[in-house]
Design a protein around this nucleic acid. Sequence first.
DNA 1: CAATCGCATAAGTGTATGCTTATGTATATG
DNA 2: CATATACATAAGCATACACTTATGCGATTG
Lengths: 104, 104
Amino acid sequence: MAANEIFRALADPTRRAIFEKLAIGSMNASALREGMAISQPAMSQHLAVLRDAGLVREERQGRFMNYEVDPEGLAFIAQWLARYRAYWPVRIEALKVLLKDMGQ
Amino acid sequence: MAANEIFRALADPTRRAIFEKLAIGSMNASALREGMAISQPAMSQHLAVLRDAGLVREERQGRFMNYEVDPEGLAFIAQWLARYRAYWPVRIEALKVLLKDMGQ
DNA sequence: CAATCGCATAAGTGTATGCTTATGTATATG
DNA sequence: CATATACATAAGCATACACTTATGCGATTG
C-alpha cells in the first residue's frame, strides 16, 4: 500500500478500466473480462497488481474469485492529496459535492 | 492532463520527491537538485514529465526556470477520486481536515 | 475419481522508462 | 562580442513492464 504501487497501478489504462468496472459492482475475474479484449492471464496479472497496491481485494467463492474495490487504496490517495490542499483551487465542483457528502 | 500522464508521473519516487519539494515552495531546477543526487538532464526530464502531466508549471526568469505546483493536476486527481467517494471509509482523518478546510 | 472449470504462475518477448554522457540553446556578464 | 550560466534535447543503454503461450493448482461436477 505504498505510493509507488498505488500510482503505478493506476498508471495503466487497462487497470483503471478494471478498477472502474469494479467500482460499479464486485465481480469475479471472468465477468471482468467480458467485453474487454484481454487474455485471462493478463487479467489475472492486472488484478494482482491492483490487489498488491491495496486498490482491490479478493474473496474466494468456490472456484471463483470475487473482486471488489478496497477502500484502503482510495483512502491512501485521499491522504496523499490532502497533503497538498494548500494548492487546491478554491472551487472544484467535485470537491463541493464531496463536502456535501461527507457533511451528512 | 490525462489520467495516464498524471498517474505515470506520480508513479516514480524521484518525481514525487521533486513535487513535494515544490509544494514547500517554488524553485528553479538547480535549487531543486540540491541534496538530490540526480544529474541535471535527469532533473530536466523529470520536470518535463511533471509539466506535461499538469502537476507542475514553469515560468522563465532570466536564464532560470522557476517551477511551481500546478493546481490543475491536483484538481484532476481530486475529481478522479470523487468518482469513487461511495467507497471511501466514513472516517478518514485527512478528509475531515479537508472538510474543515473547504468549509471556511 | 476423472474431467472440467476458474484462476494463478512461469517463461519469453517487444516496448517503455529512467538513467547516463554529449551537445544545443537562450540569457546574462565581463 | 566572447564566455559563462541555466536549462533542454539527443542518443544510447540497462531495466521494468505488459503482453503472449504454456502449464499448474484448487474446486466443482458427472
